[in-house]
Structure formats: C-alpha cells, structure tokens
Design a binder for these strands. Structure first.
Lengths: 200, 200
DNA sequence: GTCTATAGTATGATAGAC
DNA sequence: GTCTATCATACTATAGAC
C-alpha cells in the first residue's frame, strides 16, 4: 500500500542468489502493479530484475509464486509503515500520517491505482490456485491496524470507521486512475483529514 | 454500475443477426465482469452467448470490440438507471435510491466487484488501443449525475461530494470482494444513507 | 548456480466451404 | 449469414549443457 517508489528501481543487491531473489521480488511487485497480473509475462519481470529469463525458474517455480512474492513484499512494506506510524503518540496523528502517505503517492495512484487494491481486483476473479483470497488477507491487516487507532481514539464502531477510511482510499485510488487525475487523491485526502480532525 | 442481474441470463432474443449481436454483448458484459478482461477468451463469451466460436468474428472483428460493446452496455444501463431515478422528486431520495441499488447488488459485488470499477482497473493498466480511458468516461457520467443531485440539494462543493459518494461505492465494492463479505456493502451503504440524511 | 533451447499449450484471428 | 478448420503467435514451463 502506498508502495510508490522505493522498490521500483531495486537494481542494487549483491551477486549472491539472495540478491537475485530480492531483485526478482521487487521487480515482480513493480511490474505486476504497472501491467497487471495477466498481462505480465515472466520475461517482463526477468527484464526488470535484470535476470536472464530461464534463470527465473530457479528461484520461483511458477508465475503464481512470483505473484505470491509480490504480495509478501507489499505485506512487509505495510508492516514497516504501520510500525513507523506506531511511534507517533496520538492515534489521530497516525491516521493523518497514513492519509498523507496516500496523497504523496498520488501520481503513481493516478496512473496504476493502489498496488494492493488492483492486485486484489485481479486475484478476486480467480477461483482456484489459492491466491484468490491472498490479497484480502493483506488488506485485512491494514483494516485491523486502522481499527485499533479508532478504538484508541474512543469512537463508536471503530470497525465501521476503519472500513470507511480504507474504503475511501481504495475508492479514491480507483477514481484517480480511471480519470487519470492525481487531484482526486489530494481533494479526497483533505476531506479524510478533516473528518479525522472532527472526531470527538 | 450495479448491473448485477438483468443482463446475465440474456439467452432470449430472436434468430436474426440482431439477436446474436445482443446476446454477444450481454455475454461479454457478464463474462468480462466475472472472469476479467485478460482471463476471458473469445470462446468463453461465445459459449455464454450460445454462438459458435468462429461466428463471433462476424459481429466483432477483435476482442477489444467485444470489450467496447460491454462498456457500451454498462453505459446504457447506467443511463436507464439515472433516468428512472430522475423521476423521483427529491434529489436526496434519488441518491438514497442509488445507494439502495448498490446494496441490493451486494452478493455480486462481494464476488466480482463493481462491473465498471473492475473493468476500469484492468483497462487502466493499458497504454495503447485507446480503450485505456474508456471506462473512465462512463464513470465520469455517473459522477456528473451525482454532482447534479448535490447541486440541487444546495450543498457546498457538489463535485467533492460526488467524488466521495462514488468513491465510497468503488471502495466498498473492492473491499467487499477482497474480503468476500457482502455485509461490507450493507454497513457502508447504511452509513452513506445516514450521511445523505444529515445534509442540511 | 546459471543459462539456452525448446517442448507443449492456449489463444486471437483468418480462410474458405456451405 | 453461418460455421469448421487451421494458421500464427505468445507464453509457461522444463530438459539439460555448462
């Protein structure tokens, strides 16, 4: 979520297999986001990771394992983000900081949508392979964290508030990319911040 | 939007070419929604429309033309819906009726997401073929209609309200399908109705 | 561990008989 | 207008040399 930049140009890493594996994960996350799961070929990911095509299968036995790896990478990023936000004293500030991060990623969102959300849309249409529900689990993690913030603030129905906030993020990302307009993120972000400020 | 049922079992129609064309359009809309654009094959649509595979190309020269046809069908449905809602006297009732329709389609949304929204997600990741922005145009039509309702009500920033309402719909559809939980639609729908009722 | 060559399969699209 | 047969291509995945 709000992945935007940092993994995108992951050309670093050593020459050990760990380096290649990392590069492939990073490339998978970025390319799957930009091109979508079904349109992405193994060759696309290999090229982005600067790894020979045939060598990919040494690290990931199937394309679905690459999707799984991208998912895991997004989950890791999310955990890191919430851990950093947890260092803030006020839960309101944590939520507003989360929203600010979403708005910061407006240009990527306006072009390709939310990395997790669009991945979820594609995987949801499957009914086999066991990956169809995987994105939902990561989104659930974010929902739970947001719910904890609202609970700490002391509002009624913290789960409903969490649903509304994360839903708003998914909705504004989708509209922003469908309309190719980053301003959607800015405007909706400002509204969300106002709503958080207005809490008792 | 909120397409759900009525086109899904369109096995009626005569034996004239018009009938087949209609059946193919309806089948395209339904199958593309359920399986996604990239996973859907011409054969899938032909089977659903009960038309021999080779015959499809007589009506639609490429797969993209079928996508375009599905898009047009969704746009038609949307126009019909808003025309019906326009018969209601109070703009608040029109909006609440719109939301009620979204909630009614909760089971389909929980499985496959919003037909227009998920289509937009897939098409957005393209950058050629001219269909990459087509879904955005249909969504824009809905946004404009919603904005007119808010303007009639007399609220400040009717466009911002429209963005929030349609964004909420897209967000709740995505979360509902990612979590495979129709209740998300019910709960978020109730919140949206409360917000409309609370307008000055 | 790394990489090439290729097998196997699925799909979009067309040619041409009826 | 309708339908069958098939071509051409693109991709996943594997076998096996280095």
């Amino acid at each position: 979520m709000t992945d935007s930049v940092e993994g995108r140009a992951a050309k670093s890493g050593g020459k050990r297999s760990g380096g290649k594996r990392q590069r492939l994960m990073a490339a998978a996350a970025a390319v799957l986001h930009e091109r979508g799961v079904e349109r992405t070929t193994i060759a696309d990911i290999a090229r982005a990771a600067d790894v020979p095509v045939g060598n990919v299968y040494y690290y990931f036995k199937t394309k679905d394992e690459l999707v799984e790896a991208a998912l895991a990478r997004h989950a890791e990023y999310l955990d890191g983000l919430t851990a950093r936000l947890d260092e803030l004293d006020d839960p309101r500030e944590r939520l507003k900081s989360l929203v600010a991060g979403w708005v910061d990623g407006r240009d990527v969102a306006a072009r390709y949508g939310c990395p997790m959300g669009t991945l979820a849309v594609e995987l949801d249409k499957r009914d086999e392979g066991g990956l169809d529900l995987a994105a939902g689990l990561v989104i659930r993690r974010l929902l739970d964290w947001v719910e904890r913030q609202y609970r700490e603030i002391g509002v009624d129905g913290p789960d409903g508030h969490a649903l509304a906030l994360v839903g708003a993020y998914q909705g504004m990302s989708l509209l922003s990319s469908a309309l190719r307009d980053p301003e959607v993120m800015t405007r909706e972000g400002a509204r969300l911040v106002r709503e958080i400020d207005a809490l008792a």
